[in-house]
Every structure is written in structure tokens, then in C-alpha cells.
Design a protein around this nucleic acid. Sequence first.
RNA 1: GCUCACGUAGCUCAGCAGGUAGAGCACUUCCUUGGUAAGGAAGAGGUCACCGGUUCAAGUCCGGUCGUGAGCUCCA
Length: 645
Amino acid sequence: MTEITVSIKEGKAGKFNPGITVAEAVKSLCSSKERKRTLAVRQGDGELLDLAASVDSDMEFSLITTDSAEGLKILRHSAAHVMAQAVLELFDKDIKVAIGPATDDGFYYDFDRDEPFTPDDFAAIEERVKKIAGANLPFVRTTMSRVDARQYFADKGQKYKVELIDDLEDDIFSLYQQGDFVDLCRGPHIPHTGFLRAFKLLRIAGAYWRGDEKNAMLQRLYGTAFFNPRELKKYLHQLEEAKKRDHRKLGRELELFTISDQVGPGLILWQPKGALVRKLIEDYWKEEHYRHGYELLYTPHIAKRELWATSGHLDFYVEDMFSPMEVEGVSYQLKPMNCPFHIAIYQSNKRSYREFPIRWCELGTVYRFERTGALQGLMRVRGFTQDDAHIFCLPDQLEEEIFNILDLNLHILQTFGFTEYDIYLSTRPDKFVGSEKNWQRSTDALKMALEKKGLAFEIDPGEGVFYGPKIDIKIKDVLGRSWQCSTIQVDFNLPERFAISYTGSDGAEHQPIMIHRALMGSMERFFGVLIEHYGGAFPLWLAPAQARILNITDSQLAFTDKVYQQLRQAGVRVEKDVRNEKLNFKIREAQLAKIPFMLIIGDKEMEAGVVTVRLRDGKNLPVMTIADFTEMVKRESMVGLEADF
RNA sequence: GCUCACGUAGCUCAGCAGGUAGAGCACUUCCUUGGUAAGGAAGAGGUCACCGGUUCAAGUCCGGUCGUGAGCUCCA
């Protein structure tokens, strides 16, 4: 028998007899510490192997260990299997199982069972999972031919598995078994269930089989797993922290916005404090756009239905639009987008190539009929204000304009403290308008601009809008959750439909290219993200109240009022709390309101004509005069400055 | 829209073998004028989301509607 060489990337190599298992090779080549942490290996060509796999020819591999992201994913995938085993054992071994993959922060498994799972079942399932984990059951891999595998699952009544097999191209299928539970699965898996030392069922939800709403609704159980209980605890703690930052909770507590049943779902009422923050954001936004060569527009909320027919919205977007209304026998409809209005303004004059690029922006409020189940706080609403803009340009200006947009986009996002993004370039969908040549040209322009800007991005095939390709930027908040706000879309549909043109240098009429873009996305969603990002403690430049004056007793009332007036005059956003309450109580309330500065005024301050400044983290600044305080607020509330207060 | 859960004072929640509602905070009034995260007392506030059914009797059981949440689908 010829020996084979097995080597570990960046490690030792050795000669073995063919048929040796990965586990044996690892045992021989690695320290016992390494061996204990190893779950699976990655072959030179990228394929993953279980420890139990046999090695028949020369191979180089790298270890996948419990401290890697990949290792965690394997654990969670295995946890899904264990959970399925537990569910079948506990309830009914004939429950049909669908799929059970790992996700970014855990895993799920979909079940088809007539009776609904209830949260009360969680404890029992968790206990059974623990029991299975404690039994150290090995994950055993076997393979079957297509025919055998199909027959095997058909015999067990597992119709979803049969469907999966029918849809896959493979000739050989692998099955994994632990205990009595057998699942169709590519693997790899943890060597045995004992690795599953920290497991938690998180929630239950419905999910369509294969994500298609025409299919059966299955019951999806979500859970998460870690290699040790400490990490699980940390994760659960993070979930708690995220809950505390929930914009719906903070929005209520800080009186930023409210949603009223009698007004309607998905319609946002901005309370004074939220409205003030919005105003600050909008002022900043307008200034930046002015600086970057944009002109501001205002357009109405409704338009004749005919306009939406011309624009194509009635063909492609009706389901997202509110129903039409009759006005003097003419049908009007609420706008779901601003673009047709901007085009109408374009058409108000004859245009020349010399005007290009035309950059028009608008904080335009649109209404979209979102399905009830999709609504969520500020993140998903039915009426929202987009920070919209449309750029009309020449074909050879396209790339530069996109580059400029990206530039402005990142600049604005950075101002709010967002420095990490996930960027996607979405290409032509199945249903599309325009020529393939145009699609190709604009997709290339988007790509070039991204590359020139040095931005890493992923291609999202087929996810473009029907009228053109787009760039989506998802921002990550402090907790690492991502939210889609920015979108940049090239459009050759609308210029065509409205037959807009410009006179070129050749004296002939040509069609301009149009770019749609929103940077913050919508004021509502962006505000929601901001609230969660800052945990409600807005930086000084955005804080609805920058300071609150707290007097100690009534004897300082006159002085307090004088300070209040003086600061207001100087443009400091200040409020006063002169209620007959103890200082402790007032401080507590100001702190909970997350106000950056508390100005404490007692007899000492009154006599010296100064204020004591307390920060929202509990620290005190040195006593200062009103003028000094004003000066400090001005200095520290520069746009985009995240002060340390 | 679909699945599951939930819907009690402005807010957070308790109530339950079905007998016609309770706490804390907030609010109002009074006492207290107190230096760095809750001083005290009294009062007011609810057709228990809405509609219908079962029952001698429903916040409590059943059905429907509306709304909210977690997801699915979809998206700024």
C-alpha cells in the first residue's frame, strides 16, 4: 500500500496509510489542545470535511476550530439538527421537517406541524436539547444515491426533503444521523452533540416554505448556540441592551414621536423634541446639498392618476400605492415617489446640454401602501419623507455624478457617526425596461464609481429596480446591526416615458440620463436608526435640549429666569426645571431625558453670577459664567462632532 | 397579506375555578425650600381595543374586526 501525505496548512505533515480518518491525522499532527478544539477541516480546494471523513489521497487542510466564526457556524448548524431531534422526540416523530440552517447570530429549523408551538414548549425543548447534548451522540455521515435517498425520505413521509432532493443536481446525497434523527445535509457537523454546551431557544415565527407566500406556512423555531455558556450569556445581554435602545421605546420615553391608532398605522406624528431633531438634520442636509451644487425643490403630495400612468407606476407599482380619489371627476393619487414631479419641473423649460448636470433635491413626503405585517415603528411606515434628489446628466457625466453622490453620501453618513457600511450593487432583474446596452453601461458606471471611491461592494444579481441598476448602502449602528438607507439608482425608463430631452451641442434633441438617489433614505427610518445608534443620547449638535437649568430653591427663581433668557437669546437650546422638587429628583429626570448639560443654580452660583455644569454621565465641569458656557456650547456643537459629554 | 403571540388608567404592569377593577410612575392640590439619580400626604383618572356570542353573571370563555410585537414576503 502506498502511503499518502497529509499536511496541515502552516503546520506539520506526515505519511499515513490511505483510509485514515481526518481525526486520526489531526491527532497525529496536532497538539492535544489543538485537537480538542478542532471540529472539522477545510481541504485545499475549499471543501469542508468532518473529522470522521476518511482520507484516501494526499491532502492539505486547515483546521476549523471552536474559536473561529466558521466553527461557530458549524456548531449552530448542528444545534439546528439537535433541536429538530428534540422536537420530534418530544412531540411527534412524524412532524415534517423542512430546513435548518445557521444564520448570522444563531440558527432556525422549520417544521410542518398542525398544532402551533407555544412559548410554553420552549422549556421542554431546551431541556431535551440539553439531554441530547449531554449524551455525546456522534454525528454520523452516510451517503446514498439519489434514488435511495429519495426513497428513504419518501418512506418516512418527509416530503420537504424529497422536494429538496428533486431540486438538487447532485448524484450522491449525504445524510447525517445523531441518535434516531436523520437529516439530509451537506455538513459538516460537530463530531458529537457534547460540543453543544450553550443553547437557547429565542422565538417562534411563521415562515413560508422556500420563502414563497404561495407555499405552506411552516413554523420556524429560532435559537442560538455557543461553545460556552459565558458567550451565550454575553449574547443575551447584548439582546437586552439592544432592547433598551429600541427606538420605539426611546421614542416614547424621550417624547420624540408617537403613532396614534386614530390617525392610522404607519403614520408618524413627530412630537416637539423629535421635530426639533428633524429640523436640525434637515437644515444640515440642505446646507450640504447647497454646497454640493444642488438646488432645492418642493412638490405636491398628490397628482393626477394620469401622471402615474405615464410614469409607469400604475404598471409596476400600483400595489404599493394608496387608492385613487376623485376630484371634480378627475382621478388623483397620493405620490409614492417624487420623480415624476421633478420631471415636470424639468419640462417647464427647454433644456440645453450646457445646464448639465442638473441636481435637484427635495425632502419629499411620499405615501406607500405597505402591507400591515410589514410596518415597524419608524423603520417601516406608510408615509415618509425621502431625502430625495434627481440628477439629469449627459451619458459621459454619469460616472462622475455617481462618484460625487457617493462622496456626499459617505460624508453625510459619517457626520452622524456611521463609518461602517455594507454596499451592494444590484444588477438587472428579470422584469426590466430599457435596452441591455443601457443596463450594461450604467451598471459599469456604478461599478467604476465605487471602485474609484475605493469602496468594497457585493454584487446582488437581479435585485435592481425595473428601471435601472442601483447601489444600496446599508449602515451599521453601534451594535453592528445594519439598516438600508442610502440608495442610488440609474433610470432610463422615466426620461423615455416622459420623452424629456435637451438640445445637444449638435443642435439636435437627445435624451438625458437620470439618477435617483436618497442618502439618508427617509427622515423616519434614518431618525429611527439614529435613536438606536445614539441610544437616545444625541450629540450636542443634535440634542433637542442641549441644557436644562435646575434651581435648588425658589430663592434663585429670578436669576434662573435671567440665565434662561440669556441662553435662549444666544441660541442655546435650553429648558428650565423650576418645579418645587429636590435637586436629586430634578437631576434624575434630566439624566433620564439624556440632556447633555445640567446647569445647577443655587445661592452660591447666584451670588457669583455663574452656573455649575453637570454632564449627563454624572461628571461635573468647573463652575463657569453664562458667557463661557454659551461659548463652550457653540464650540462643542459643531455639526457632526460627537462630544464626549 | 400570511403564521404565532399579545391588547387592563398617559406609561410599565398585576388581576382570572367567569361574580362586575388594582399597583407603581406620570398628572392635580397641599405640606416640604431640600446642593449632584426618586421628600411626604391627599385627589383625580378605566364603557378592561372594538363588535357579536355563550352564561343568571365576561376584563376573564368563544367568534369576528382593528391595532401592536416576532418572523415570512416586501422595501426608504
